[in-house]
């Protein structure tokens, strides 16, 4: 991953492109919310260049969601470009999404499961621990259950890149850890960008962490390498603390 204002890191991206086909790059992104307002991004560049579980981290209000929406094409930036190395869609999911309440969540999940992915759906239902929710309507679920059901339906779709914006909010820590660990195993060849305010979680599980800083700070994005903990792995406390410290200092 490369960061704005860090020329050495930016040069590393093209070389890595040859080794890895999975890549997403934002170049010189400029954006402002209103014509009169100060720009939230000015020539912002960012690159994730490996498949895996990565993160976009930063304090509230720095523009993480806006950047995510620019990456997935929901918002057009005033300047700059977003390029990806694959043709698969970039999906963006956030924690306030809802399923229509006219059917049970189980029925909804069945309807949005592409052919041949019923097995994956069943596995994810168990990993996400939402089997008891399948007979209920979305409105009757707790916030944590709602977020899990919502994320699950995205994971069933065709995607090369998935941006999870606080998608596991309100989910208890143990379940969150189980979900993240399994996602990393099941979707090894995809790129998942996790947006969260949970410092420990991001430091432990993510590989490339882009810390987006406030508008007044330069460079806007600082790169931190996460611990990328996997199912079979054991956390190295010292390394984890170092990563967390780097992230805190960067933010």
């Amino acid at each position: 991953m490369a960061a704005a204002g860090r020329p050495s890191s930016r040069r590393a991206c093209p070389a890595e492109r040859k080794r890895s086909p999975m890549r997403i790059e934002c170049r010189n992104i400029s954006y402002r919310y209103h014509a009169e307002s100060e720009p939230i991004f000015e020539n912002l560049s960012l690159c994730y260049d490996q498949p895996g579980f990565h993160a976009l981290f930063g304090p509230s209000g720095v523009g993480k969601t806006t950047l995510a929406r620019i990456i997935c094409g929901e918002i057009q930036p005033a300047g700059g470009s977003v390029t990806t190395s694959r043709t698969e869609p970039i999906l963006y999911t956030y924690n306030l999404e809802r399923l229509p309440d006219w059917a049970t969540t189980g029925r909804h999940l069945e309807r949005v499961t592409p052919d041949g992915r019923a097995g994956l759906r069943e596995s994810l239902v168990d990993i996400f621990d939402i089997r008891p929710c399948l007979d209920q309507r979305f409105g009757g679920l707790s916030l944590g259950q709602q977020n899990r059901v919502n994320l699950l339906r995205y994971l069933l779709q065709d995607f090369g890149f998935l941006i999870m914006d606080e998608s596991l909010a309100n989910v208890d820590e143990k379940t969150r850890e189980t979900i993240i660990m399994h996602l990393k195993e099941l979707f090894r060849d995809r790129m998942i960008i996790y947006i969260s305010h949970n410092l420990v979680e991001v430091a432990r599980f993510c590989r490339q962490i882009a810390v987006l800083r406030s508008v007044s700070k330069q460079p806007r994005i600082v790169r931190v390498t996460g611990q990328d903990l996997r199912l079979e792995g054991r956390p190295d406390r010292t390394a984890l603390e170092k990563t967390m410290l780097e992230m805190m200092n960067a933010a």
């Binding site: 997935c72 999911t93 999404e97 809802r98 229509p100 949005v112 919502n150």
Partner: peptide
């Protein structure tokens, strides 16, 4: 937006579904 987002970004949105939602 909170309901329609999924159907839009996965290309599943049809006018009938939009009206229904």
């Amino acid at each position: 937006a909170d309901v329609e987002h999924f159907y839009r970004c996965t290309g599943r949105m049809r006018w009938q579904l939009e009206v229904k939602i």
